[in-house]
């Protein structure tokens, strides 16, 4: 998989019909400020998000969701990641608006970070810790 490199590379995407993009643009700005490379692909089906992650050879996949239905779509995403063999090596994040009680379910699916309202420091430190722990494995 990915060669260790100086710059962390992040793919940011949304599920197909999401209309809101303020969150994802905000996070893209935060991560660029933190020295990461950001690929913003917009709205895609879960399988296509995984294809793009493989093609772009990223360390992190971040999903922004606002309108509900995130459990079903997140599940499709993680299944595709598993099938294509990047689930263990890639950091998965999900942020936006969703019921807090879904957080344990999302963690169980394999998300390394779930963010409802957060700061740049929290996201960056979550990414750095998760990458370190995945590389140790």
């Amino acid at each position: 998989m990915a060669q260790p490199r100086n710059k962390i590379k992040v793919l940011l995407a949304q599920f197909p019909l999401e209309t809101h993009s303020r969150g994802i643009i905000t996070v893209a700005g935060m991560l660029k400020d933190a020295g990461m490379e950001v690929v913003l692909i917009g709205n895609e089906l879960p399988e296509r998000i995984i294809d793009a992650a493989i093609q772009e050879d990223v360390d992190v996949v971040g999903i922004s969701t606002y309108c509900g239905g995130e459990l079903a779509l997140a599940d499709d995403l993680m299944k595709a990641a598993e099938e294509k063999g990047i689930k263990e090596s890639t950091v998965f994040l999900l942020g936006g608006i969703f019921p807090p009680k879904n957080i344990p379910k999302l963690k169980e699916m394999g998300f390394d970070g779930t963010f409802l309202s957060t700061t740049k420091e929290e996201i960056v430190s979550c990414i750095e810790k998760a990458i370190a722990s995945k590389r140790r494995r």
Binding site: F15, P16, L17, G68, L71
Partner: peptide, 20 residues
């Protein structure tokens, strides 16, 4: 969301988004 984005409720893109 499906209606706003002009997708039918049975299109693959509408999964999880019908009546949300």
């Amino acid at each position: 969301l499906a209606t706003v984005q002009m997708f039918d409720s049975d299109e693959p893109e509408a999964k999880g988004q019908v009546a949300t």
